[in-house]
Design a protein around this nucleic acid. Structure first.
Lengths: 188, 188
DNA sequence: TAATTATTAATACTAGGTACTAAGTACAAG
DNA sequence: CTTGTACTTAGTACCTAGTATTAATAATTA
């Protein structure tokens, strides 16, 4: 729905909004949408520092590509900063607003669970481990932007079963604790 | 490291591999890498049906953009197919290889947890709910491609606390069960 | 009305291509 | 040795979605 004529600043505000919703729009489509010439759109982009379509597409592609890659590569959520195999490990994770509910900015539980689970697996000296049973408790809600520090400790090893305790803190406060029983699967 | 001269089919095999690893490469960079003319690269791409750089970038961007959007919109993992508010709910989720470990094809625990958690939240008639405590048990590993069916039942409501039981099955076998205690947060 | 701001137009130039034609090179078969 | 075929390179015209710049016109404000 093309707008009727408005002021420059109004148009620029709407332009920003429009591109946030629909970033893959050409100048030509924009100038039809706003009922102005293509040069006006380009001046607006110049003033607002909005890059051209192809740059916008590239940015989205690169951001997501690297995300997918790093997740596939490491298979650990968060950054491993300390590791004593079969004993203990520490990882950190900076939470973002993408991990949280829009309304409350509370980080969704499965992100915290994923961090704990992957750290528990990392600390085990087995090629492949699988979560058997997890008993866990969330204490305080985590907000987007909080920096999580996870500590894993191997409590007991019994054959193929590993008992790992994971605690996650924000600053000095514990926000999660869980007991994982991991079962190693050996290669045939 | 530019290759020494090889055959056409060898080069094309390597080209496919190269672009899978590094999809954001121009023909010019490729022709230097393979030590052939730019036209050869273009003929190769034509024969192999590989689109131009800008199309490749666009594809990656669109794929990931829509993924982020759909995840943000629904905030439920899996497809909700039945819902009796404050009583029970059913959702289904087709697992993919992206959710699994590369080596074993076993689906990572947090995806199963996320499905259960979000279904538990969906069944509650509260604007925003937060996982308090979750006690859970995985029984059988889930393999990439398995179709998960989750059933949630509200066991008890006590003030702001909701006790929800979630069971996830693959065909007739239970692969997960968990008890969630959700706490509703009211608006001020 | 004059000055200022906003908009439109026009032109030259760019990257990273497509599509096409033509010519050159390598190598094995006759 | 020459011919045929596959492969490779070169060159041209054209495309999209722009940038950067200059100039002219329209709208607003002092």
């Amino acid at each position: 729905m093309p707008r009727g004529k408005t002021t420059k600043s109004e148009r620029q505000t709407q332009l920003l909004k429009k591109l946030e919703e629909e970033p893959f729009v050409t100048d030509e489509e924009l100038c039809e949408y706003f009922q102005v010439s293509i040069q006006t759109i380009r001046l607006d982009r110049l003033e607002l520092g909005i890059p051209e379509l192809r740059e916008r597409v590239k940015k989205v592609a690169e951001k997501n590509y690297s995300k997918v890659k790093s997740l596939g590569e490491s298979e650990i959520i968060g950054e491993l900063i300390d590791l004593h195999l079969n004993q203990s490990a520490i990882s950190i994770l900076e939470t973002t607003k993408e991990m949280a509910f829009r309304k409350t900015k509370i980080v969704r539980g499965h992100h915290i669970f994923a961090m704990a689970e992957s750290l528990a697996m990392a600390v085990i000296n087995a090629d492949v481990a699988l979560t058997g049973i997890a008993n866990m408790k969330y204490s305080i809600p985590v907000l987007a932007g909080d920096k999580l520090v996870a500590k894993a400790e191997v409590a007991r090893i019994r054959g193929k079963k590993f008992f790992v305790h994971v605690k996650i803190n924000v600053k000095q406060e514990q926000v999660f604790r869980g007991k994982f029983i991991l079962v190693s699967i050996e290669e045939e």
